[in-house]
Simulated assay, not measured.
Amino acid sequence: MFRLWARTFQDNHMLRDACISDDSQDTRTHKIFRALDEVCYQFDLPRPIWLDKTIAEFRRHNKARFTRDNFVESIDFDYLEIQVIEED
């Protein structure tokens, strides 16, 4: 079981969250991208861009923050945070 938790924050207050599960036998990378796509669909967000800083943070902590710099379109919150909370 693979689970990814996503949350949006504004002024250090959580606005909304979602937990995405994936039981497929796909690679970890594919599961992460698919879960992020599902989060963006549920929250009605544009897909964020993975900057080098974001990739390094995710590799180090299994957690990443997507700020306004990661989005091409404007967003109505401070950042989107994703975190892997369970892996097979």
Rank of each mutant, 00 (worst) to 15 (best):
M1Q: 11
F2R: 12
R3D: 03
L4G: 00
W5V: 03
A6I: 00
A6N: 03
A6H: 00
T8F: 08
F9G: 05
F9P: 04
Q10M: 11
D11S: 15
D11A: 15
N12Y: 14
N12F: 14
H13W: 11
H13P: 05
H13K: 14
H13S: 10
L15H: 02
L15W: 03
R16L: 11
R16I: 08
D17V: 08
D17F: 15
A18M: 07
C19L: 11
C19I: 06
C19H: 05
I20C: 01
I20R: 02
I20E: 01
I20M: 02
S21G: 11
S21V: 09
D22E: 12
D22W: 15
D23C: 10
D23G: 09
S24G: 04
Q25E: 14
Q25A: 15
D26V: 12
T27M: 07
T27Y: 09
R28Q: 11
R28H: 12
R28P: 04
T29A: 13
T29W: 12
T29P: 05
T29Y: 13
H30Q: 14
H30I: 13
H30N: 15
H30F: 13
K31D: 02
K31F: 06
I32T: 03
I32V: 08
I32W: 01
F33G: 03
R34P: 06
R34S: 15
A35K: 02
L36A: 01
D37Y: 14
D37Q: 12
E38H: 09
V39Q: 07
C40P: 11
C40N: 12
Q42E: 10
Q42R: 15
F43C: 00
D44I: 10
L45A: 09
P46S: 08
P46D: 07
R47H: 14
R47Q: 12
R47T: 08
I49V: 13
W50D: 04
L51G: 07
L51N: 09
L51I: 07
K53H: 10
I55G: 06
I55S: 08
I55W: 10
A56M: 08
E57A: 15
E57G: 08
E57Q: 15
F58M: 02
F58D: 00
R59A: 07
H61C: 08
N62Y: 04
N62C: 06
N62R: 07
K63C: 14
A64G: 02
A64D: 01
R65E: 00
R65A: 00
F66W: 05
F66P: 00
F66Q: 03
T67F: 07
R68H: 11
R68K: 13
R68Q: 09
N70D: 07
F71C: 05
V72H: 14
V72K: 15
E73S: 09
I75W: 03
I75Q: 02
I75T: 03
I75L: 02
I75V: 03
I75K: 03
I75S: 03
F77D: 04
F77N: 03
D78R: 05
Y79Q: 08
Y79F: 15
L80D: 00
E81H: 06
E81M: 06
E81L: 04
I82F: 01
I82G: 01
I82R: 01
I82D: 00
Q83F: 02
Q83T: 05
I85Y: 00
E86Q: 08
E86K: 06
E86S: 06
E86N: 06
E86M: 05
D88I: 07
D88F: 10
D88N: 10
D88K: 12
